[in-house]
């Protein structure tokens, strides 16, 4: 059974966890609509997986299953070799503090300053004291280049700055894994670089990342793995540079043309 495999593999691997995320024959339906079909996917610690694919192919849904914002319909999904996402008894809060998420629309809390936004999860989800949470927030805001913006409310920040705050907010909880759902799609082109820069730095520090994006340059230079989703399935899964150089299918080639 895969369960024993999982444990042995995890135990046998010291530094980097194998199978931080494991999809095993996962289906996801919304009523009659089959959105994810027989997904098989294992992601190890330290990977930077870039997911691309046409609109409606299930990219967001795949990410949202990982942190339990969506419940899978069939199959097994195991996070960190311990959280069984198909088991209703699994404490989703424990999974979510391990998997930070960054949304296309930033979703910063508008009634909190940047600092308070970042401190929020550290304080309320991790139970840190207020001072400690705010210190973490200041540190992370500095890391995303916004040390001087802590006292600003989201509506006083540019889109790029808001998204960097949102990344800091997710990091403040101390996740092992970061999920990005089109983090730059809502931004004007000239603001995308600052967000991609922060993500690149995060990848270089060894963060495990799953990134849904249309930024092919990022996929090529930062991604360690490229997944092409099509109609609810993983159509291709390979090395980004190789896939760009030799498109594995006409479907993928056409998609790349459309994005470019």
């Amino acid at each position: 059974m895969t369960d024993t495999e999982t444990t042995i593999e995890a135990a046998g691997n010291g530094a980097k966890m194998k199978g931080l995320v494991r999809f095993q024959h996962v289906d996801k339906n919304f009523g009659e609509v089959k959105v994810l079909k027989d997904i098989e996917l294992t992601i190890d610690q330290g990977e930077v997986v870039v997911i691309v694919g046409p609109s409606g192919s299930g990219k967001s849904t795949l990410l949202r299953c990982i942190n339990g914002l969506e419940t899978i319909s069939a199959g097994r999904l195991i996070i960190e070799n311990q959280f069984d996402m198909s088991d209703p008894k699994t404490d989703l809060r424990k999974v979510r503090v391990e998997a930070g998420m960054v949304f296309q629309q930033f979703n910063l809390f508008p009634h909190m300053t940047a600092r308070e936004n970042v401190a929020f999860g550290a304080r309320r989800a991790r139970g840190k004291a207020k001072d400690e949470a705010l210190a973490t927030a200041d540190e992370l805001l500095a890391r995303v280049g916004l040390a001087d913006r802590g006292g600003h409310y989201p509506d006083e920040l540019s889109g790029g700055q808001q998204q960097r705050v949102a990344i800091a907010r997710a990091l403040a909880v101390g996740p092992k894994l970061m999920l990005f759902d089109e983090p730059t799609s809502a931004l004007d082109p000239e603001l995308r670089g600052e967000v991609l820069g922060v993500m690149r730095a995060l990848a270089l520090e060894g963060m495990t990342m799953i990134v849904v994006t249309h930024e092919m340059a990022f996929a090529n230079s930062v991604g360690t793995r490229l997944i092409f989703m099509d109609d609810g399935r993983i159509a291709h899964d390979g090395d980004p540079a190789e896939m760009f150089a030799n498109p594995p299918s006409d479907r993928f080639r056409d998609f790349m043309k459309d994005v470019a």
């Binding site: 942190n67 809060r93 979510r96 999860g121 309320r124 989800a125 907010r169």
Partner: peptide
């Protein structure tokens, strides 16, 4: 989206 952002933080 704000409620989801809160959930995603694990609160």
């Amino acid at each position: 989206g704000l409620i989801e952002a809160g959930k995603a933080l694990g609160v």
